[in-house]
Design a protein around this nucleic acid. Structure first.
Lengths: 134, 134
DNA sequence: TTACAAATGCAACTAAGTTGCATTTGTATT
DNA sequence: AATACAAATGCAACTTAGTTGCATTTGTAA
């Protein structure tokens, strides 16, 4: 994906093309692991304010450009792509040693039968273990 | 389960029988929903220090008496019972309206085939939706 | 080029969770 | 019952994630 290719993504979502958004998109597309606030701040060389970064993460998530992942660390991490919905789940693998978060796009979709009266909107699965690099 | 019944749980784990531990155990056993730090602090009438409470949550979790659950709120919640292990998962249902966290003990166990080189330790599933009370 | 909504930067704030250390308490031993 | 020691508590100070209000700046459409 070339730099110019993802700028239309912003327009399509009604988001203005600002410096941080271009930088964020470019970064998310090339990163294969989920990114925490700190990862992102470092990757962007602390060029932008904390609130600006958080607000844009929120905007991107709402627009379905990225999705948040919550593991036992208590720190939200973000990865490129829409949030999982039922029937189209993708699981996340968190390495207990290096803490890297992988998106496992190709795992078999799951079906959950929740009790009567419960309505499912989305399903997120966190698999903890040791990754191939560790 | 009577009050005296769960005190042996502490001894068996090598944990001293202190006031906060008895109170915590009693509370966890009767609560059907997962509890946040704030829930617990309120239930215990702010009788104990923040650090004491957190340290005991850690000790209980390590002993397998409770397990932590992390949803999109970023706030860890705890529920009675051991953490899910592969083949014996139980999923958690988080209501998007009232934020209550339910343990769904009776959902079908899942099998995940992770890529080569990855080793699974435990699987946690968060189902988001609307609960029966909402 | 103008004009306005949307986005940014700044500063101040809230709240979760942690840590070091002095004091207290549960329990095992005599 | 007294002692003795490790483990647990309380306190205070701290770190860091994430939020909010507001004045200023900027992207885009007219």
């Amino acid at each position: 994906m070339k730099n110019k290719d993802y700028e239309p993504l912003l327009e399509r979502k009604g988001l203005k093309k600002t410096k941080i958004r271009i930088a964020l998109l470019r970064h998310f597309i090339k990163m294969e692991h989920a990114q925490s606030y700190r990862d992102l701040q470092a990757a962007l060389a602390n060029e932008f304010d904390k609130s600006t970064l958080y607000r844009n993460l929120g905007a991107f998530e709402q627009a379905g450009l990225i999705h948040g992942i919550n593991d036992h660390s208590g720190i939200t991490k973000y990865a490129f792509g829409k949030a999982p919905i039922q029937g189209k789940e993708h699981a996340h693998f968190v390495c207990d040693r290096c803490e890297t978060v992988y998106c496992m796009n190709d795992l078999t979709p799951l079906q959950f039968d929740v009790p009567k009266g419960f309505k499912t909107n989305q399903v997120q699965t966190i698999i903890r273990g040791i990754c191939a690099d560790c």
